[in-house]
Design a protein around this nucleic acid. Structure first.
Length: 364
DNA sequence: CGTGATGATTTAGA
DNA sequence: TCTAAATCATCACG
């Protein structure tokens, strides 16, 4: 809007007309030695400028309703008449616009205005453009990508989420039970994020289309270069991308909160079930001379107990040190499991012998 | 609520 | 990277 004013001022200067000159038909008539029949150029210019002002008001009232009320006086609201391109315009405005479009001098003037404008807009354009990508939004993007919120859809996303979850747990905890909860929550966040993003994008393109239609419609009356439209679109996109940044920011926040909760939850301890403890103890006491299960043995135990390999490692680490510290205290337990394993072995061998000699079933 | 048990984490060493 | 040892944090029980 500020630029509009500047441009119009520049326009007057370039044409050798000050704002005052334009407002004074006589001075224009003096310059136009040919002497126009009915209306002079000053009038037309005035009208074009008046339309420019009005259409801007209209555009604002239409496009930024929350900012508009200050510009809408009650009288003008009453004036609302026909509509063009979905835009309600005052009737007298329509009349003037039509009259202007029919004026035979209009095309020539219009092209001159367009030319002047093209030059001024170009010079303005050169100064501030090509803004570098916002480092903050880049950081947010990277973060969301790393967390598996943005980036590839569904399949890749959940894989990234799993990776993020694994990363959150450091080296241990390749487990899946608690992670599924984390993943579910992350998926929820991702869905919200994507739906919101889509909403914003839709709104943005809708609004852009609307503005472009508006400007295109207006460009028939007042000089609007394609570049200017482009610029307008860029401005709109910048506005919307700042909204997007807010969305990204809050999504990041949500992920961080989820993550910290997850880390806290990870520290929360839950005793293994009785069966798991039994399996582990059985292995421990039956390998008391060397209670160091191999990687395969750990995996097997983990599977049997429904825990992770690192949990098995933790358990054996704790068990070894605690057993060593107070063997006496564990003696009872040791005996118990020794008997248990002995009985089991007996059972197994009995069954084996039974299976091996079915002809003599009464041997047990 | 105090206390021991227990799973997880941290630290240091090989 | 694995382990011992110390330590933390929570559970479970009286």
């Amino acid at each position: 809007m500020d630029e509009q004013t500047r441009m119009l001022a520049g326009l007057g200067a370039l044409g050798g007309l000050s704002q005052a000159d334009v407002g004074d038909p006589d001075s224009v008539r003096k310059q136009q030695s040919l002497g126009q029949p009915q209306q002079d150029i000053g009038d037309i210019l005035q009208q074009i400028m008046a339309i420019t002002d009005e259409s801007l008001d209209e555009a604002q009232a239409r496009c930024w309703p929350e900012e508009a009320p200050a510009q809408w006086t009650p009288q003008r609201e009453g004036e609302l008449g026909g509509s063009t391109a979905g835009c309600a315009l005052p009737l007298n405005f329509q009349h003037r616009k039509h009259a202007l479009n029919c004026h035979r001098m209009k095309p020539a003037l219009f092209s001159v205005l367009c030319e002047i404008k093209e030059k001024t807009v170009l010079s303005i354009r050169g100064v501030q453009e090509e803004d570098p990508p916002d480092p903050q939004i880049m950081r947010l993007d990277n973060m969301l990508l790393a967390e598996g919120v943005s980036g590839p859809e569904k399949g890749g996303g959940s894989a990234a989420a799993a990776a993020a979850a694994a990363a959150a747990g450091g080296s241990p905890n390749d487990g899946s039970i608690e992670h599924s909860d984390y993943r579910a929550k992350l998926t929820q966040i991702r869905q919200i994020y994507h739906s919101e993003l889509e909403k914003y994008e839709q709104a943005c393109s809708e609004f852009t289309n609307h503005v472009m239609n508006l400007l295109r419609e207006q460009s028939r009356t007042r000089p609007i270069s394609p570049k200017e439209i482009e610029r307008m679109v860029a401005i709109i996109h910048r506005k919307f991308s700042s909204i997007q940044m807010q969305l990204k920011q809050s999504t990041c926040e949500a992920v961080m909160i989820l993550r910290s909760r997850f880390l806290d939850a990870r520290r929360k301890r839950r005793n293994f079930n009785k069966q798991a403890t039994e399996v582990l103890n059985e292995y421990f006491y039956s390998h008391l001379s060397n209670p160091y299960p191999s990687e395969e043995a750990k995996e097997e135990l983990a599977k049997k107990c429904g825990i992770t390999v690192s949990q098995v490692s933790n358990w054996f680490g704790n068990k070894r040190i605690r057993y060593k510290k107070n063997i006496g205290k564990f003696q009872e337990e040791a005996n118990l499991y020794a008997v248990k394993t002995a009985v089991d072995a007996a059972n197994v061998s009995a069954q084996a012998s039974q299976a091996n000699s079915p002809a003599t079933p009464n041997s047990g």
